[in-house]
Computed example of a mutant assay.
Amino acid sequence: MSDLNGKTALVTGASRGIGRGIAQRLAHDGALVAVHYHRNDAAAKETLASIEEAGGRAFAIKAELGVPGDAQALLAAFDAELAAHGAEPGLDILVNNAATRFSGRIHEATEEEFDQTVAINIKAPFFIIQHGLRRMRDGGRIINVSSAVTRTAHPSSVAYGVSKGGLDTLTLTLAKELGGRGITVNTIAPGWIETHVTEARCATPEGRAALAAYSVFNRVGRPSDIADVAAFLASDDSRWITGQRIDTTGGSTL
């Protein structure tokens, strides 16, 4: 277990799926975790309850991303909640996990869908980082959750792939920019993970087997598989790693 006691973390899109797994693990390791979500109040409450039942500390922030002023509103709410919980102001760990995904090939994508995908998947993280850096302590950690689709061709998810590719580039650039402050910036790139996104496909033995076959381990990934990597990148153990894209697909891209 990493020692994150005294650290504060903000995880976007943390009410379920990969984001929930990361929030739970960071809280387990001692961080005070801000659980960001957009709509699903019940899921956010479940995430908080699971963290608190395990002895961790967390609070929820409800905020819409992909709209003007989203980063400012999110970080202002973060500041207010820290104060309400009696915590020192500041940010140590930022995990950009929130994302949207429109399925469709190039001839099927609409401008509205493309704009929303870019606004949530790359513009929001860009400005969350910009505003978060004003709060982030030296030696902080920025972890961006990308996808396997930036290294393999998925024509049916072209807009999603473009947005996640931008996130990979942002990681590389900021790692060099922020090295002087001891801040590391890395990307996690998951493959098929068993979450609400893959629920329908995993509902049948045939569907689950098809997704499992992508991995050399012949199983579908779990949120904890990604959360464990995030916990390492959030810890001091990863201090000499920055600007990297960590493939967390279970060998799906080999």
Rank of each mutant, 00 (worst) to 15 (best):
Q24Y: 07
R25Q: 15
R25T: 14
R25H: 12
R25A: 10
R25F: 11
L26T: 03
L26V: 09
A27T: 00
H28L: 13
D29F: 09
D29Q: 07
G30D: 13
G30P: 14
G30T: 12
L32E: 07
A34V: 03
A34N: 06
A34S: 13
V35N: 07
V35S: 02
H36C: 07
H36V: 05
H36Q: 14
Y37R: 07
H38L: 08
H38W: 12
R39S: 15
R39G: 12
R39C: 09
R39W: 13
N40M: 02
D41V: 13
D41T: 11
D41L: 11
D41F: 03
D41Y: 01
A43F: 03
A43V: 01
A43Y: 01
A44R: 05
A44Q: 10
A44M: 08
E46R: 13
E46N: 09
T47L: 12
L48P: 02
L48Y: 02
L48W: 02
A49K: 13
S50C: 01
E52S: 04
E53W: 00
E53M: 05
A54T: 02
A54W: 02
G55M: 00
G56H: 08
G56A: 06
A58F: 09
F59I: 05
F59P: 06
A60R: 13
I61K: 05
I61L: 14
K62G: 11
E64W: 03
E64A: 15
L65T: 05
L65D: 08
G66N: 06
G66K: 04
P68E: 14
G69C: 06
D70R: 03
D70C: 15
A71S: 13
Q72Y: 01
Q72V: 10
L74C: 03
L74Y: 02
L75T: 01
L75D: 01
A76W: 00
A76K: 09
A77E: 14
F78C: 06
F78K: 04
F78W: 07
D79E: 15
D79V: 06
D79W: 08
A80H: 10
A80G: 06
A80V: 07
A80L: 11
A80N: 07
A80T: 13
A80I: 02
E81D: 06
H85P: 00
H85L: 01
H85R: 11
G86C: 03
A87Q: 15
E88R: 15
E88H: 11
G90Q: 08
G90R: 11
G90L: 07
G90V: 09
D92A: 09
L94P: 02
L94G: 04
V95K: 11
N97D: 13
N97M: 09
A99P: 07
A99M: 08
T100W: 05
T100L: 13
T100P: 04
R101K: 11
F102R: 09
S103T: 08
S103M: 08
S103N: 12
S103D: 15
G104P: 06
R105E: 14
R105Y: 10
R105I: 03
I106D: 00
I106N: 01
H107W: 10
H107I: 06
H107S: 10
E108K: 00
A109Q: 14
A109D: 09
T110N: 01
E111F: 10
E112W: 03
E112V: 10
